[in-house]
Design a protein around this nucleic acid. Structure first.
Length: 220
DNA sequence: GCCAACGTTGGC
DNA sequence: GCCAACGTTGGC
């Protein structure tokens, strides 16, 4: 039981870039309702072990949220103002002193996001090769838990209802012509949940002033 | 001049 | 066809 987990607490230097995930949620393996996770650290812990230890509503007892499957979901997939992206399971928690950052790109016609690690020496690293070099140069940081296989640069995927048209994300209902599609979901061919074998995801807030967000919500 | 965000590509 | 790796560049 971790009593220190409290909602909205940021790491010491809260220089978080605006395009990093703002909220974290996990789906209950029994009732399929989404439950907010109170901190990035708790989320990373759950994500690492989600395959061995499925998440159930009762787990929210850990942070005194005490949700049951009978309770309404914390958030639903059609809630406006939220962008959803599904994370891969079994990503190791960052070693002590390290931070794993996910940054969404604003133009999403190529990759939707990048993963960076901030080292104990506050260097930003962007590939396994850079991690390897860093660990060679900083043997003091190459601890038991800070080994190469404890790092993952796997980026999340957009939720299946999202499309990219001309470099911007659109909801299904906003698309005028199928020929405009540059990036298309693959749900019809592979069930994403099966593919990822997990229920973990996080979601991102859209700024209220964002024109794109306005355009998306104004279509009825 | 720097560097975060972006676009490209080689290797699988 | 996909994506890890990284070179490029626009905005500061």
């Amino acid at each position: 039981m971790d009593q220190n987990v409290s909602h909205g607490v940021e790491p010491v230097n809260s220089m978080k870039p605006p395009n990093s995930p703002r909220e974290f949620a996990v789906e209950c393996a029994r009732c399929y309702k989404w439950r907010y996770i109170p901190s990035k650290e708790k989320y990373e812990e759950i994500r690492e072990h989600i395959l061995e230890w499925p998440f159930y509503c009762e787990t929210t007892r850990e942070w005194h949220s005490d949700k049951k499957c009978d309770d309404p979901p914390d958030v639903t997939e059609d809630e406006s103002g939220l962008k959803w992206a599904i994370d891969a399971p079994s990503i190791p928690q960052p070693p002590p002193g390290w931070e794993r950052l996910i940054k969404f790109r604003t133009k999403r016609n190529t990759r939707i996001a990048d993963v960076y690690y901030n080292s104990p020496a506050n260097q930003q690293l962007r590939s396994k090769i850079e991690i390897e070099k860093y660990l060679e140069q900083h043997p003091e940081d190459a601890t038991q838990s800070a080994k190469l296989d404890q790092f993952s640069f796997q980026i999340p995927r957009p939720l299946e209802e999202d499309y990219v048209v001309n470099g911007e994300w659109y909801k299904d209902r906003d698309i005028l012509s199928i020929n405009e599609l540059k990036w298309k979901r693959k749900r019809s061919k592979r069930k994403r949940r099966d593919e990822w074998g997990t229920i973990v995801l996080f979601l991102k807030e859209i700024q209220a002033s964002n024109e794109q967000a306005v355009a998306m919500t104004s279509v009825s």
